[in-house]
Design a protein around this nucleic acid. Sequence first.
DNA 1: ACGATTGCTATACACGCGTGTAGCATCCGA
DNA 2: TCGGATGCTACACGCGTGTATAGCAATCGT
Lengths: 235, 235
Amino acid sequence: MRIAEADPTSETAAVPDPAPSDLTTRARLRDAAIECFAAEGFGASVRTIAARAGVSAGLIRHHFGSKDALRAECDDAVLERHRTLKTEGLESPANAMAQLAEADEHGAMLVYILRSVQDGSPAGASFIEHLIADAAAYSEQAVASGILRPSLDPVGRARLMVTQSVGGLIVMLSLHPEIDLTDFKTVLAKTFEQIALPSIELYTNGVFADSTYLDQYLAYVEAQSPNAQSRTEQS
Amino acid sequence: MRIAEADPTSETAAVPDPAPSDLTTRARLRDAAIECFAAEGFGASVRTIAARAGVSAGLIRHHFGSKDALRAECDDAVLERHRTLKTEGLESPANAMAQLAEADEHGAMLVYILRSVQDGSPAGASFIEHLIADAAAYSEQAVASGILRPSLDPVGRARLMVTQSVGGLIVMLSLHPEIDLTDFKTVLAKTFEQIALPSIELYTNGVFADSTYLDQYLAYVEAQSPNAQSRTEQS
DNA sequence: ACGATTGCTATACACGCGTGTAGCATCCGA
DNA sequence: TCGGATGCTACACGCGTGTATAGCAATCGT
């Protein structure tokens, strides 16, 4: 039913329209929507999106049917772009974000993901769960190879680190509402530069001087339920 | 000019109106706005707020002039309530949030702060900066008393930990969009229970097995600019 | 070469929003 | 007792939004 920009079922031979951009208007509309959603959040109006794509507003309805459908297609596009980027490149959760922020297009993609999480949409939750699963898998492997310390709660640790990292970026995004589409790269780079040393330091040494807090908590949780858990203990 | 709920300048003798709640309608309106903003974000309509307070919608304009003025007053109220709560109670940044989440009213207050940050409003930025300043002050004191490890970048560490903690809560909030005003406490308690062990573990031991990453970064930053910084080094 | 489908624009509709205005009841001070 | 301020409601206006419809130009299949 839906005709993609390169669907071979109804493609004749050569490209039918050498547009100003080499993309189909539909694809340009989708990319413009991704950029607008990243820049302004999902409250961006369809007229703004259409104006950014250089077309009329009604064309969005003509191509996608509704704003929600357009957004769903943006979610799919970003999700798949992230997936391919993940499989083709290295996927070290620590600097995956930094890698994503390199190209401008990737920067917009990153911010789109942050907006999705910030918005509370199912797509955002899906992103988070994927990131957590990836982090957990990478963590297990890194623990096995001696890079990371083992944890009493591996998936809990992965969940914590992902939510905190993404959340920190969302906070930094919210702290700069005047952000422009052109300085995604700049702002992200400055942020990473700002938090690089503290985060590496935190991940290397922690912040507590000794293990009294951890010991106290473990004793507390042991007193609460002296049965399950605390079996894989080798911190 | 502004008539507070207990302003003695125009108070006769006894309470003039034994309303269903013992608060002024104006104060009830303000509290209802705080709750609605916490529950739905700042897109909550004035009609919703008025309905929650059990009054008409136009009354908001009558009392506050505009929705923005109402929100500003909510910001002030929450900020001052947080300030008093901070000074009167203990202020350990680690469990300050947990303490805030105890009472229902405090839970709504916490979520209001999170919404402010999420929204990107100046009030949210102010909250964050205050939290960072507090955390930095507490951190300095805790380092002096041997509870926390010293840092190569103390304020950077405080900034990182605050933004990540608050951001993690925002992500958790966004992951539960169906949140109801009545289970602020429940959701927050479950979240804290979920992240307690991983965060204590992280803050105690870090995640890296050794200090190669930190050493590499320090060497890199030293090679980049061999002059300033790296003087207060005693990690 | 011609009909039909496609790409696209322009305009209008319905809705929810914040805001403004008119009016009513009540309470207080002189 | 009475004038005026106060607390509050009901209703209407303008605006921006997503959505729907009508129509035009071009391209493609046959």
